[in-house]
Design a protein around this nucleic acid. Sequence first.
DNA 1: GTAAATTTGTGAATAAAATCACATAATTTT
DNA 2: AAAATTATGTGATTTTATTCACAAATTTAC
Lengths: 208, 208
Amino acid sequence: MSNRSRILRLSRYKNAALRLKSLNFLKVFSDNLADATGVTASQVRKDFSIFSISGNRRGGYQIEELLTQLNRVLGKDKLQKFILVGVGNLGRALINYQGFAKSEIKIVAGFDTDPAKFNRKADTLILPMDELAGFIKTNEVELAILTVPEFNAQEAFDKLKAAGIKGILNFAPTRLKSDDKVIVHNLNLETEFENLIYFVNTKTLPSD
Amino acid sequence: MSNRSRILRLSRYKNAALRLKSLNFLKVFSDNLADATGVTASQVRKDFSIFSISGNRRGGYQIEELLTQLNRVLGKDKLQKFILVGVGNLGRALINYQGFAKSEIKIVAGFDTDPAKFNRKADTLILPMDELAGFIKTNEVELAILTVPEFNAQEAFDKLKAAGIKGILNFAPTRLKSDDKVIVHNLNLETEFENLIYFVNTKTLPSD
DNA sequence: GTAAATTTGTGAATAAAATCACATAATTTT
DNA sequence: AAAATTATGTGATTTTATTCACAAATTTAC
């Protein structure tokens, strides 16, 4: 078993554990993680149970050990290289985003069709689309971020797929479909905004 | 009943319907919407049923009428004004994001503590935090986007809450909690990346 | 060293969400 | 205008996810 929201929760537990670690905590209880992430304690324990993450009865979880186990499940025990296609406002923001600094996530290059954006001297190279397939092969990149306008999304997707990319985080406002070859995670900003608007307008509390 | 994923699906149906409308389609079937959004046809109909959105037996849904009903539910029948706090890379990208152009979402001002960022002449004003509360009152803004670094998130949240903001889309890597006064929708980019990494590493298809 | 206290881990129970399946309504065909 | 066809709409069923509740393990107190 392994659905999306369960994995999202594991990430949150990890973030909560990291925060506690930075405050010099050595151990943490399911109760603490539940408070920090807004779920129930038994949910935390059930999630751990499903991924064979274990602690000590009465002693809680050793934070260091817990983080190791969570990072193992989440694949964060090794560097994850991403390329980014579409160096517009959002693309550039993601390339410069500081939030990944401590994590094992790295955007290794950006690609665009606009020559004005190419840059072979920057910290993160910005290259023409022609070099996409070659770069992916040479650098053994499996993951991509798609931040192109709606109209170009399908074409860019096809190129990424042809070049052997295995996973795509799609910010373009077009829903792309996962298949055996490529896993797509669609993240539509307008949809997220609309969701908030709905809950504010109806004054119901979202139940996630 | 009204959980987050059901509302997210309604947004997707709406986007699919919009796309079909732009191709001059006049009607659409639950089957079409299902294909376009990656769910089952009965899911589409069940979602509609729950929000009393109805079509014509044998005739499907009139797109124009369907959009009206969806926009009513999603609160997109009127302009939704947002302010944005934290004009960094991501904040600026959202301010300049073109994807909202056709929608009823508008970012009316940005706020920051850094005087270098203030701009009273730009299309979207960038103002000092001191003016936050006043602006919110004068312009009757209920919604906010939070794109500050982790360390400043709680303080900014408190100010927004005190100023009467009703809903926050939080991009800061700190989980803020919803309550009766403010609904928070947390959107943690690192978590989204990790989620993709997990499914690529384990080669399982996400079941959302 | 025994008893009391506390927290995990997980089957069992409950709740929630998705799918099925079919009666009902509308349209098209003949 | 009757019969055949095609979609919706929704109770019933199934599946999935969450919570409950308690035995097992460990720690602390006496």
